[in-house]
């Protein structure tokens, strides 16, 4: 059971990363990967929406906030693994690639995919987040300094 949960945790992580990534960055990583995965498309990329919910007072009753655009896609490799994708936005190429990568991560190509695609995407996302957080931190009010008239 634990093993299955661990597998799910790993899969959840890479699927989430692919869902949120910038299509242009995935484009670059995809070219670098240079991997052909023989497959059939189970569900062609389809654009739709997901209703996003919030909670009253952040902790109370759920309510509908509004929708986001999402594209989904499913594939099956000729070696038998199924790959799924639910990705933000309306980019069908991104959805197809995400599904292929999800399937590929269940094969021997996993190490290469991690090295060429997942790690670079994750590094880029972390860098963007760190930069934003650092800019926010620079706008932190230091009441103590102001009151003492230092600086």
């Amino acid at each position: 059971m634990t093993v299955i949960q661990d597998q799910n945790a790993g899969r959840k992580q890479w699927m989430s990363l692919l869902a949120k990534c910038d299509p242009a960055e995935l484009d670059g990583a995809w070219s670098a990967l240079d991997l052909s995965l023989d497959h059939q498309v189970l569900r062609a990329p389809e654009v739709g929406s997901v209703m996003v919910r919030g909670r009253a007072g952040a902790v109370g009753a759920a309510f509908n906030l509004g929708e986001i655009t999402v594209t989904r896609c499913s594939v099956r490799l000729s070696s038998g693994q199924d790959g799924h994708a639910y990705v933000q936005g309306r980019d069908k190429t991104k959805a197809l690639r995400a599904a292929l990568l999800d399937a590929g991560m269940q094969t021997a190509a996993a190490t290469k995919i991690r090295e060429k695609v997942l790690t670079p995407l994750s590094t880029a996302a972390t860098r963007r987040q760190t930069t934003r957080a650092a800019k926010a931190a620079a706008t932190k009010v230091d009441f103590f300094t102001m009151a003492r008239g230092e600086d």
């Binding site: 739709g48 997901v50 209703m51 919910r53 919030g54 009441f143």
Partner: peptide
């Protein structure tokens, strides 16, 4: 929006885990 099929609904978003660009309080200075 009305032309899009709806795939489902999300879990309620966890705003406590927000990566904040801005965060101010008019009630608690510290």
């Amino acid at each position: 929006r009305t032309t899009l099929p709806r795939f489902g609904a999300s879990h309620p978003i966890a705003t406590g885990a927000m990566r904040c660009d801005r965060r101010v309080s008019a009630t608690f200075k510290d």
